[in-house]
């Protein structure tokens, strides 16, 4: 039996997320994760432990080279770890079979930073791809869903008829978000969702992320360096630094008890070495 079958198949997945030995439901469980890319002197991730719980918005923050994008790739199952374990909705990603992975992917939406759209297809056809892969809906139903999701991210319905190459960077980013939520996933990953967007659109996207959690019950993981956005949407912030989790907690907790490096990262103050690199 598919171990996630009892967890439902939609945004409410997380109501029934895996229950760990400490009786807390967990959506993502990362244990002792080490990623060491060949040719690199040091591992990019050096033993990361992290749990993400149902209906949480967790923002992963850190400076350049902190390992946050690598961590996101690991928990999206795009890379295999050197050692350690990642479990999503009860599945150990290192041991998951193709069929279970296909089922798991139905429940996960990913908004890639660069859009990751097929340039040979219209935006609308790109948005329909997950529906065609995972659902059996009428064309008319899918057309309405495309327009609805484009409206969610403040894009005109006509955007569906355009090619990705005709969109600006900001529009492409929003279209990627629309595609990520086409299947109303229980778990949503966003890589720098508001970077490069104008403040009004960025604020609208933040509001959408909050509503997706509140109304659709999604669990959402956001990698971002946009501090204002993270402070607005995050239930919990995970600060990653040099491949390790420096601290994890609410903004208030980080502000109250975080060491100087955490405060610097929250304030956007660069490390001395970062400054030394360019002077």
């Amino acid at each position: 039996m598919d171990p996630t079958e009892h967890m439902a198949a939609g945004p409410r997945d997380t109501e029934n997320a895996i229950v760990t030995e400490d009786a807390e439901p967990v959506v993502i469980d990362v244990r002792d994760l080490v990623t060491h890319y060949p040719g690199n002197a040091e591992p990019t991730l050096k033993g990361v432990n992290m749990r993400i719980y149902p209906n949480e918005i967790v923002c992963i923050m850190g400076g350049s080279g902190s390992g946050k994008s690598t961590l996101l790739r690991q928990i999206m199952a795009l890379d295999r770890p050197t050692s350690g374990q990642v479990r999503i909705l009860g599945h150990d990603l290192s041991a998951i079979g193709h069929r279970d992975m296909h089922e798991l992917r139905k429940k996960i939406g990913v908004a890639f930073q660069g859009g990751a759209m097929f340039n040979s297809m219209t935006v609308g056809e790109n948005l329909k791809l997950p529906l065609r892969e995972h659902a059996k809906l009428a064309e008319e139903q899918m057309d309405i869903m495309v327009r609805m999701k484009l409206a969610f991210v403040s894009l005109d319905p006509e955007t569906a008829l355009k090619l990705p190459s005709e969109l600006s960077g900001g529009m492409l980013k929003r279209a990627a978000m629309a595609r990520a939520i086409m299947m109303d996933p229980g778990l949503l990953f966003c890589d720098e969702p508001s970077a490069g967007l104008d403040p009004a659109v960025s604020a609208a996207l933040d509001d959408l992320i909050l509503k997706l959690r509140d109304v659709m019950g999604m669990t959402i993981v956001v990698v971002t360096h946009e501090r204002a956005s993270a402070f607005k949407i995050a239930d919990r912030i995970v600060i990653l630094d040099k491949g390790k989790i420096l601290m994890s907690g609410t903004l208030d907790e980080l502000r109250a008890t975080g060491p100087k490096r955490v405060q610097d990262l929250l304030d956007g103050v660069p490390e001395e070495t970062e400054v030394a690199n360019w002077i």
């Binding site: 939609g10 409410r12 809906l137 139903q141 899918m142 309405i144 609805m148 086409m182």
Partner: peptide, 13 residues
């Protein structure tokens, strides 16, 4: 008890 986007699309259609 619950309606998702595909259900909403059915209503709109």
């Amino acid at each position: 008890d619950y309606i998702d986007s595909s259900g909403v699309a059915s209503l709109i259609e």
